[in-house]
């Protein structure tokens, strides 16, 4: 394939912005189109947790997620995004101890922490949880800040991000990064609904994402600083993007309350809902079909896997190098 040097990216969520960033870094000419304009509440990555936790994700995800996800933190840092490298803490309440045993067996790169260890890492959890796992090498970021930073970088590099339908340009290669909206072209793409909350509490401080394991209502809390916490997230086989249900919100809030009663007094700032784009194996894909290159299927791993997906897409676009996540689309 002769490598085009001009690319038109459709979709300005985390996938589209990362692909644009990777192409621009290699000297390609890029334009972005999203009917909804700049990243905002309409894109699924707006509602993300922003945990760069490849080893924790290894509990349920397949090997490529763990391997490719390890590249994320340094990639984001390179773009000037503030990445907090304080690890992840995984805990369970006393009666769900067996969940912790299972999680430890399924994951790598963690150390056991006891009550004192937890108190040293997160003083506000002292005495509340007695056992946990500390994943020291993991990190997190603020998704909205990261999206904003990439947008700024691209604009200052001369990339246009437009909400107007662009004039067709036959010399420009189209890259489709529309996420779930690409269901019209990728029939095996499905939505996995997620509900989340944003809380404000002055009574509790956390330094790193805390995952609380539970057989029915697992929860993670990601601190955003200034008393802001993101609580996530449900995972429901549905492409619904609008209705957060009472049950889901109750479950998330109850789990947070069980972790620390101070969350009972927290202010609810947001209740968010969207659907993640996913393929049947929940792994991302790059596809070249009908002259369009598709980069999609980041599932719950948007900020974790978009960097690797973007670099592979750029490799493919500019050098023809076959990416490991490329498959033949059978329609």
């Amino acid at each position: 394939m002769s490598a085009p040097v001009s690319f038109h990216i459709h979709g300005a969520g985390v996938a589209g912005l990362c692909v644009a960033t990777a192409l621009v870094a290699r000297g390609a000419q890029v334009s972005l189109y999203d009917p909804n304009g700049l990243p905002d509440t309409h894109c699924c990555s707006w509602w993300a947790g922003g945990m760069l936790a490849p080893f924790c994700e290894g509990e349920a995800a397949e090997e490529p997620v763990i391997r490719l996800g390890q590249k994320a933190a340094s990639w984001w840092q390179k773009q000037g995004v503030d990445v907090v490298q304080k690890g992840s803490l995984v805990v369970a309440l006393a009666r769900d101890k067996s969940e912790l045993t299972r999680f430890a067996r399924r994951t790598e790169q963690h150390q056991n922490v006891d009550e004192d260890g937890i108190a040293a890492l997160e003083p506000d959890l002292a005495g509340r949880v007695r056992q946990g796992l500390f994943f020291e090498t993991e990190a997190h970021l603020s998704p909205r800040d990261a999206l904003k930073k990439l947008t700024e970088n691209l604009i200052s590099a001369g990339v246009t991000i437009s909400s107007e339908v662009p004039a067709s340009n036959p010399s420009s290669q189209l890259i489709d990064c529309r996420g779930l909206s690409a269901q019209d072209a990728l029939r095996d793409l499905r939505g996995v609904k997620g509900e989340m909350l944003v809380l404000h509490s002055k009574d509790i401080t956390l330094s790193r994402p805390v995952r609380m394991l539970h057989p029915r209502h697992p929860l993670y809390i990601v601190p955003r600083g200034d008393g802001i916490f993101m609580l996530g997230a449900t995972q429901i086989e549905s492409s619904d993007r609008t209705r957060a249900t009472v049950r889901s919100v109750l479950e998330l809030l109850s789990a947070a309350f069980a972790l620390h009663p101070a969350f009972g007094e927290a202010e609810i700032l947001e209740i968010g809902v969207d659907a993640r784009p996913a393929f049947p194996d929940n792994l991302p894909r790059i596809r070249h079909h009908n002259n369009i290159i598709y980069a999609n299927g980041l599932f719950r791993h948007g900020f974790l896997l978009a960097p690797a997906l973007a670099e592979m897409t750029a490799d493919y676009c500019l050098t023809g190098k076959q990416p490991e996540v490329m498959d033949e689309y059978l329609g």
Binding site: R190, E237, S238, S239, D240, R243
Partner: peptide, 16 residues
């Protein structure tokens, strides 16, 4: 109950 929400939103999963 959870997956369908009574409409087509869960259809992709049901097809699987």
């Amino acid at each position: 109950r959870r997956e369908a929400a009574g409409d087509a939103a869960g259809d992709a999963f049901f097809q699987l």
